[in-house]
């Protein structure tokens, strides 16, 4: 309850700072629009040439794009800005103001994960949800409770996987402030725009079990389309749990290192 209240306070204060620059809202709108437009146009162009690629047709690919944009919006809403403010360029570790954060009587991981919000990312969130609903309508499949449930679960797993990946790479900054590897995750995340099955075998394996950007979007989309096997669902959930615990452990190790070696 107290932590929810704190999130509310952080959200309020971040929004206040951002709303001061009204022009940014229109810029954001332009970027979000471009993002959605290029995403949809890409599918139009591709499926204009071929009807089905390796089992994925246009509506299924649209649903996956919706999941991709949804995850991207959530990352932009708070995960990205919060972690960037600690581990990014000019972040707190870089400038030394992380000392203050470390002195706050609140759980560190919680604090650094939810501190900064970008209210304009709600525009992306709305667009992504709209696209997802449109895709569901064109898909025309009968959605069962089970499908919806597994979709919700896997979507949640996707968000946690993305968070865990960003947290793990942020934690590396404790070892060397010039590791800006969160960028690499941002770059690799673009691969999640399309079903992981479209990539060559070696890359598919890497994107599923090593850098799990494939799991983040393909699995929820499969849950919606109804092609997700129960085994894969369980594996995804287990993998997500492991990734979350692993990233948390790495972050704690980083903290320990920071407090024993910083000067």
């Amino acid at each position: 309850m107290r932590y929810l209240k704190l999130i509310g306070a952080f959200f309020k204060i971040s929004s206040q700072a951002e709303l001061a620059y009204r022009v940014n809202f229109f810029i954001r709108l332009l970027h979000s629009g471009l993002n959605l437009l290029t995403g949809v146009l890409s599918l139009v162009v591709i499926f204009n040439q071929v009807e089905v690629i390796k089992g994925w047709d246009m509506p299924a690919a649209l649903a996956l794009l919706g999941v991709y944009l949804l995850l991207g919006a959530l990352r932009g809403l708070f995960i990205g800005p919060s972690l960037e403010s600690v581990a990014g360029m000019d972040g707190e570790i870089w400038t030394g103001t992380y000392d203050f954060t470390l002195l706050r009587p609140v759980d560190q991981q919680f604090l650094i994960s939810v501190r900064h919000w970008r209210i304009f990312a709600l525009v992306d969130l709305a667009m992504a949800l709209g696209l997802l609903i449109y895709a569901l309508v064109t898909l025309g499949t009968q959605l069962t409770i089970g499908m919806l449930l597994s979709f919700t679960l896997t979507l949640l797993a996707g968000v946690i996987l993305l968070y865990a990946a960003l947290l793990a790479f942020s934690a590396l900054v404790f070892w060397n402030p010039s590791f800006l590897f969160t960028w690499v995750i941002n770059d690799l995340f673009q691969l999640a725009r399309y079903p992981v099955g479209l990539y060559p075998g070696w890359l598919r394996l890497v994107l599923t079990w090593v850098i799990p950007v494939g799991l983040m979007t393909t699995i929820p989309a499969q849950a919606l389309v109804g092609t997700l096997s129960p085994l894969m669902l369980l594996l995804t959930l287990a993998f997500t749990l492991a990734a979350f615990l692993g990233a948390t452990w790495l972050f704690r190790q980083g903290l320990k290192r920071y407090t024993s070696a910083s000067s």
């Binding site: 306070a9 952080f10 001061a20 706050r104």
Partner: peptide, 25 residues
């Protein structure tokens, strides 16, 4: 610390104070 700032530079101090008061209960 005289050479480092604990405050958010983009917002008025009063707002930072309020959040701090919540963090410190």
């Amino acid at each position: 610390m005289g050479n480092r700032s604990a405050l958010n530079w983009d917002i008025p101090p009063l707002d930072s104070f309020r959040v701090l008061s919540q963090i410190y209960r």
